[in-house]
Write a protein that binds this DNA or RNA. Structure first.
Lengths: 139, 139
DNA sequence: GACTAGTCAGTAACGATTACTATATAGTAT
DNA sequence: ATACTATATAGTAATCGTTACTGACTAGTC
């Protein structure tokens, strides 16, 4: 899909920086931490500021192109806007998507009057690589 | 339960500040944001520093007396250390506990090799009060 | 080719958290 | 009780992630 048209459709101006961020995030489904994205893109746009990254990501989020979630208090942007879970390795920090199971039913214990709109869930544990390393250490 | 003994059992020194934080958090099950806790406790301990609050909370967390989670990137400490969900009102920010359902089964789509240890889940929506207000506005 | 709203880079401000250091205190032995 | 030692505290500064502000610039449009 052409990112130009995607941005246009959302009434967003098409600029090289935005295209770069869009390509990087929307074309290939992946996660992005503002700081990392910034460092990557500086190779192509040495004058770009971290601020631009934040503003662009926030704007994409407002337009539903990205979803923001948090891992240990740090923002992560996800081009997969469908509801889904994440799993994060507590050792190396690698982050993967997990399809949301069919347990989206609101907790039965919810006090009446609450209007639940969704949830975000972060599984934590050890990725295969770290699991192996730590498994050896623990054994 | 006497907080003195609890602290002792964990090999933690008993100081007035810690007792105050422990009383405030552990006796009555509740959530605490460091800044708010700090402001509250300053009434009793005008000289106490925010740093002390952070260090105490971190230490309690390390000893399993508290659990730390994040809401929109901000740390919240929870004296309920049993696994459970939270719900947060996106309008007023009120936070409540929800018992964890029996869906702790690891996602079936998890790549093999991962060792999952748990999850944290934050439901979001509108609390009864805000739901009513917003419901009127939207109708 | 000029206009204009929106974007950009740069920097400063901000809030939350952590690090550092000297003083004070809890716990323990004397 | 008193002294001792390890740790907690207060105070401050530093750090990190994020947001706000400003003036220059530019994409989209006429």
């Amino acid at each position: 899909m052409d990112m130009r048209t995607v941005l246009h459709q959302h009434g967003l101006r098409v600029t090289p920086q935005r295209l770069a961020i869009a390509d990087r995030l929307l074309a290939e489904a992946r996660h992005a931490v503002p700081q990392e994205l910034y460092e990557d893109l500086r190779e192509r746009f040495p004058s770009m500021s971290l601020n631009t990254v934040y503003m662009t990501l926030s704007q994409f989020e407002e337009n539903g192109l990205l979803r923001r979630f948090y891992v240990d208090g740090r923002a992560v942007f996800d081009s997969n806007t469908a509801p889904h879970d994440h799993a994060c390795c507590r050792s190396c920090g690698v982050l993967i998507d997990l399809p949301q199971r069919d347990d989206v039913a609101v907790p039965s214990a919810l006090p009446s009057g609450w209007r639940i709109e969704g949830y975000s869930r972060l599984w934590s544990g050890l990725c295969p690589a770290c699991s192996e390393l730590e498994g050896v250490a623990e054994a």
